[in-house]
Design a protein around this nucleic acid. Structure first.
Lengths: 207, 207
DNA sequence: CCACTAATGAAACTGGAGTCCCGTTATGAG
DNA sequence: CTCATAACGGGACTCCAGTTTCATTAGTGG
């Protein structure tokens, strides 16, 4: 181990030969993990079961992801890459309503809603998962922030309005209801979230 | 087992002799469970460890609470009973700011914040825990709803404003930030939550 | 104060989640 | 096409969370 000593000891499995089977295994495991999270939540999840359902060796799952938290973190990275297109309506309220409806629809969908619940729960336990979750929302919020900046340019909102905070304000009541109530996330909730945020932003609360 | 057949088969342990030792055991276990939840989160929690730290027999914990979810549900019932006094300032914005600061202070406190995170995470896994969590928030929201009703009576808000929804709107951004971001919950966040809600409510969004 | 039994606690037991080892497969470079 | 080896898969092994059993302790009604 003279000159050619092992300097790649820190490499995780899957980084040197990411093509072919490795990629197929990752896709199968992540999809199965998503299904399992949506079904049973994050607490009743064990990697052995994931491996069985994904037709993948148990050792492979443990070697590459190690723990449930690590697997969820990777799932979040995967979810962050799948970006949804933003619709532009020309007015602040229209854009915020579009955003609210997108979020509401996602959370109201049985599978997606359960998945988001599970992912948020997982993030409260593990630091790496939390970091992945925060990055996920930073990305999603940044995608929609431009519509607030446009509204400022149009004169709909005061100068200095924080675009990120406005977008977060739309999602907040929807997530709050998802997590702390059993009331359904109907369309009215989305509309209310958008209108409340628009009213507050116009009043200069986020400046 | 003729006339005196066992009709109390459905009774849980602790319901027939709830005084003395039984009460002490419950208090010790719930306190320890709160500590453990705040420390390690809800996933790394096992009842055997709780029993050890609470100086209580392992079988007792398993017999009375059964699972982690059941224990958290009982903890939530206990938390719901400890009601905090509501301050009245005479104006809607003042009351909402007081509420926001109360919630913000609780969530910003390291132990309490971690505990609430853990409890919310636990509720995503188990139906009974979720029900207990929903009841907890219903109680807390109901305690503050009167200040909105007073504002309507004073003419600060339009008739037909939903008091519950207004109170929830104050908490929502604080919880959203707690769960999806690593930014600190500073006082400005509380003030912004109260002001945004007041502006939206005045605009008639919650009517 | 006594008797009855609800509730607790110690210890032995069990099943399966997570680890380890090693032979097999197939990726990617030359 | 060929070879070195990254990555996978099966199976044996370990360890501890959760269960069961039973003797002991202490509430509660009389």
């Amino acid at each position: 181990m003279s000159a050619e000593e092992k300097d790649d000891a820190c490499d995780d499995p899957g980084t040197v030969r990411p093509g072919g089977r490795t990629a197929r295994v990752r896709a199968a495991v992540l999809r199965t993990a998503g299904d399992a999270l949506a079904e049973h939540g994050f607490a009743r999840l064990d990697l052995a079961d994931i491996a069985r359902r994904a037709d993948v060796g148990k050792s492979t799952v443990y070697r590459r992801w190690g723990t449930v938290a690590g697997l969820v973190a990777d799932l979040l990275s995967d979810m962050a890459e799948q970006s949804l297109p933003r619709t532009e309506t020309g007015s602040l309220l229209g854009d915020l309503r579009a955003n609210a409806e997108l979020v509401r629809g996602t959370l109201a969908d049985p599978r997606q809603g359960a998945l988001f619940k599970a992912v948020i729960a997982a993030a409260t336990t593990d630091a790496r998962t939390a970091e992945a979750l925060h990055r996920f929302y930073e990305i999603r919020v940044a995608e929609w922030a431009p519509c607030v900046e446009q509204a400022v340019r149009r004169g709909e909102l005061p100068e200095g309005t924080d675009p990120y905070e406005v977008i977060r304000a739309v999602s907040a009541p929807l997530y709050y209801r998802l997590l702390t109530s059993d009331a359904p996330l109907d369309e009215a909730a989305g509309v209310r979230a958008a209108e409340a945020t628009a009213a507050a932003a116009r009043a200069g609360v986020y400046a």
